[in-house]
Structures are given as C-alpha cells and as structure tokens.
Design a protein around this nucleic acid. Sequence first.
DNA 1: AATGTACTCAACCGCGTCATT
DNA 2: TAATGACGCGGTTGAGTACAT
Length: 238
Amino acid sequence: MGRAPCCDKATVKRGPWSPQEDATLKAFIHKHGTAGNWIALPRKAGLNRCGKSCRLRWLNYLRPDIKHGGFTLEEDNLICTLYSTLGSRWAVIASQLPGRTDNDVKNHWNTKLKKKFNSFSERPAPTIAAATQQNAITNMAFPANAPPYSAAADWIRLDEQMDGNLMFADANFDFKHDPEDQFPMLWNPQELSTSSSNSSLPIEQNQLPFGGNAGEALLSYGFYQYPYGDVMEGLDFK
DNA sequence: AATGTACTCAACCGCGTCATT
DNA sequence: TAATGACGCGGTTGAGTACAT
C-alpha cells in the first residue's frame, strides 16, 4: 500500500510564491507558530498550498534569521572542509553556517564549489615517499599538486616531517589554526605575509599542532586559501 | 537587437526516519 | 508489533536572468 498524498496536487497551488502568500504565511506563523503540523497549516492560514511547500518556503526563505546574499570566502572554506569529511549532508553542514539553509548550501555547492573541488581532486596526487626517510628534508613544493597560483611553490613548502608533526619550514606566511579545533586550518589572505619578513620566526611557530603523517594531515585538512582573494582549492595529498 | 547558452536558485519530488496509535 | 502519517533530507527540475555571439 502506498502512502497517501499529503495534499491534492490537482487543486493546490504550485510554483513561485506571491508577496501576498508570503505575507499570509509570515503573519500566521508569527501569530500561531507552526503548531507542529505543517500539513494542517495552509488550511488554517487560508493558503491554497501544500504543507510541504509552506514548510520549505518558511525554512528556506521567510524565516527571520535567514542570511541572504553571497557566501564569504570563510563560508566557502568551511563548506568544502565539511564536505570533505561529511559528504553531502547538507543539513549538518548548514548547521555550522549561521543563517544559511541546507538548500542554500547545496545550491552554492552545486553551482560554485563543486567544480573547484572536483577539478582539484582529479589531479594526480604526489607521493611523499621522500618524507619517509627519517628526518629527511623533502623540500617538496607541491609541484604535482600545485595550486593555480604561480608563486605558490615559493611559499608553501613541505620541508620537513619530524616527530609526527607536519612542519612548514618556510616562514614567510602565517597560519591560523585553533589547536582545540578538529577543523581546518584557515589561512586568511589578510594574515598572510607577502614578504619574507617573518622568516626569522622560530621554526616552532610554523609547526602544525597535530600528529600523523603529512599525507593524512593534508588529506583531512586540505583546504588552502591562497593570497589575493579568490582562489580556493582542496589538496588531495596522499 | 535577436538569439542561443550558461548559470542561479526557488521549488518540487520521493524516500527514509521517527512518533503516534 | 505493525500500520499510519508527518517531518526532514538530498536529489533534481525548470523558470528567470545574465552573458556571449
């Protein structure tokens, strides 16, 4: 036995919502709430709409705490990072982005972020075989997996792996990472040094505070934000 | 200016899950 | 315990818009 339809599709209105319908729905919910029953809501509110349609309109558009407008670079980074660990669990991902809905995040991913993500993950992953030598200086500059930023090899260098910590010996950039946080290193372009003035920093200051080998670390936390704004890629670095 | 193509995003669909009876 | 019904989610669609030719 199939499930009974939640509404009569032949008689109920479909398609884009009019301003009047929006106002009716908003006014009703402000006054009565959803009463925990979306199916009955349109009839009570005087709307010729399916309950599911009302729910979607409210959750994805009319809710007062919805954030409209473009996604920030920080939000892009977070979405990509969460996608790499959670997959397409848009509701969970959206819950980490205040004011964004799962539909918003999903649309943004499908139209903007997916291409970047896929194009990068299809690249051949370089080996870190050189790093397996005890205390070897790999001096590997991500050439095979290099970001589309010509100078990247100059400033992102995996120079040494020791004591289970991934170490960036090049000191001409700063990184931002909360050791308490499982999640990503977010490098803010504004915080990236554009000169080598930091190269005198003690090397410990550029030591990333998590263990594991370089490949695992970069695979799990592999979203980089490059200087000058708009290039953000994932590194599938094994 | 007209037409074709690509892109965006609101909305729909169907299914899994969960609460209730 | 099974049946039922509502909710919530991810996948997909398609109308409207922007851009290219």
